[in-house]
Design a protein around this nucleic acid. Structure first.
Lengths: 349, 349
DNA sequence: TTTGGCACTCGAAGTACTCGAGTGCTAATA
DNA sequence: TATTAGCACTCGAGTACTTCGAGTGCCAAA
């Protein structure tokens, strides 16, 4: 084994040990736990070198070493091996997933809960990005005078709706006329290509007074725009309190404070997923300082993609301390992702 | 002022002081802060008496007194005065409430966020109890072969829907026939009086084969049953970490752990609201040990009722430490409740 | 019933000390 | 050149001890 190779093995061992014990790792305990064919003095030299390379660091002079963000990065990129989950672990996850759910949103929420329970971390499931999916059906249904429901069916059978206000004296017949015209002209259009102008053009032919028309169109437009709003399900925030990493109250406060802004987290994940280069079943991993959210400096994100049909996708992942079992967590996410995909296929026949 | 009266004033002063300082209150500081026309020795006697009555207690021998659960109860029931919010405070709440929201669910979520921000505590808003409300419209709409949407309009214009699975080869016409029959026979019926049998009877006249019918009916039935599911929006859990009351990590853990089970909290609130005797705009207050949820022994619940129309109501409230400014919080809840009611009236024309 | 006086209590905060895992460096060795 | 044994040094964690002071209960006098 070359010196270089050994240094990397040392890094790996340090990460592994630190992840399990949460104590800075010293040269001696490293020797004890792993069987390096060298002495602790040699490891000390290697460790000094690793520190010079910026891969590990000392919390203070007389302590052991902990991985730096770059160290974790190196570990995740090159050293870690992702194993399959055991049968028992897979069983456990399967058991937590409710297979009777038939609505995508509920299914995702359930999966998020399952993921947070099995990892013991914060799970993160985002509703699918629908902006690019097409409008297959659109109906505006009268609920009562002044109130209607805009009902949309998108690609892959995703259903969205919104209650909107309409002029009080608009008749069901008039509403139906508008609805039919709009549906006819928007049919098959991607959501993000629909504008107020498109809508206005689609109803040129109708004989309904503009004053009535405009409000309905505007409300319909907002309903369509709102349909592709990203929601995020964060579950298990309280798990973070159990981790020694957040036993300092201030850290925990700051972390949970940020996590309580769903929108911020969703926005960030959406952002980083855009930058992703690999295929859909690769993982985005963000470590420590790489995360641009306050209070998450000691955390890592791991996210990946699930699919609904061929074109629609959303994200699923985990937020945990930098010091987590990346390999295990990745295989857990992977299995939950698999279950989601499977179940969605099931729903869509 | 009689001795009895003074004792109560002392209790009131102790609660007030303890709530603001979070330090056990001693006889001397009591004299300093309030102008009792007696000496500290007298107050010591009074306090000994209050302790004998079980209204206050000592954390340890050489500390001041803190209110016991019964002390808080006495305070809340008889001593506290609830003041109006200042114009500025009302402004502040109004500003946080988004008046452009038109859907009840979003409105409640928004109100919950507003309440948690203004109180700095955990807010709790429950979706309305719909079990007793009537079904005004029911439509089963084909989405694609094998998939339909059950759309229900309930009293006061509440809209609920659910995507359900139907037999693949059921035609839109057949579905419409079922939908119309069901709607006709259920129209105006309270949700909780609808059973599978009611549904089955309603479609006796149709000429659709039973095998197809049964699945549709069953799915419709579950959709109806699911419509009155209670949701709860808890917001601001992280606020609890800022309170000195939960600076012990273990308490915080246990508290947030319990709060993460939305269902448990919802169930409990539902439970205690049932026992409520006063009118709708009275307050349910549960203090400390009165709360039968793990980890909430040092908390209090304050809840009250908002209304949608005349018959439908839901709950809104706050979970905070026992040691909270009950009077202030009550007026804050009250104002948010007022804003909700106002906005719902607005929505319903 | 109220009050001043007094001895007593006990947690919080500060100080000092020890212990030991861990480090870096040096000089000898393979 | 790479490895190792040896050794002096570092520094946080844990422990023990002390002081300080707000608060208490009780008693005897007003």
């Amino acid at each position: 084994m070359s010196v270089e190779d050994r240094k990397m093995k040392v890094l790996q061992a340090i990460v592994d040990d630190y992840v399990t014990t949460n104590e800075p790792v010293g040269s001696k305990s490293l020797i004890e736990r792993h069987n390096f064919p060298v002495s602790s003095a040699t490891l000390r030299n290697d460790m000094a070198e690793l520190e010079r390379m910026g891969l590990i660091e000392k919390p203070h002079t007389s302590a052991g070493r902990i991985p730096s963000d770059r160290g974790y990065r190196e570990y995740v990129d090159s050293l870690m091996t992702v194993d399959q989950l055991s049968e028992a672990e897979r069983e456990d996850i399967s058991r937590r997933i409710d297979t009777t759910i038939f609505e995508a949103r509920d299914l995702l929420k359930n999966a998020s809960a399952a993921l947070s329970e099995t990892t013991g971390l914060v799970s993160l499931v985002m509703t699918p990005r629908l902006a690019g999916s097409s409008l297959l059906q659109l109906k505006i249904l009268m609920i009562e005078p002044g109130k209607a429901l805009v009902l949309m069916v998108l690609s892959a059978g995703v259903v969205k709706d919104k209650v909107v206000r309409i002029p009080n004296f608009l008749t069901p017949e008039q509403l139906k006329e508008i609805s039919d015209s709009v549906e006819k002209s928007l049919n098959g259009k991607p959501l993000d290509e629909i504008t107020l102008v498109t809508l206005a053009t689609s109803v040129k032919e109708t004989r309904i007074p503009d004053s009535l028309l405009n409000q309905v169109l505007y409300e319909t437009y907002t309903a369509i725009k709102q349909a592709d709003k990203l929601d995020v399900f964060l579950e298990g925030e309280h798990n973070m309190l159990k981790l020694p990493d957040f036993s300092e109250l201030k850290r925990a406060q700051s972390l949970l404070g940020t996590l309580s802004h769903d929108g911020m987290v969703a926005g960030y994940v959406n952002e980083i997923e855009k930058e992703k280069t690999g295929g859909d079943d690769t993982y985005m991993i963000r470590i420590g300082q790489e995360i641009a959210l306050e209070g998450l400096e000691d955390c890592s994100f791991i996210t990946t993609t699930y699919k609904i049909g061929d074109t629609i996708s959303g994200n699923i992942g985990v937020i945990g301390p930098k010091r987590m079992d990346y390999s295990k967590v990745i295989s857990q996410i992977d299995f939950v992702r698999y279950k989601i995909n499977e179940q969605i296929k099931n729903i869509n026949g």
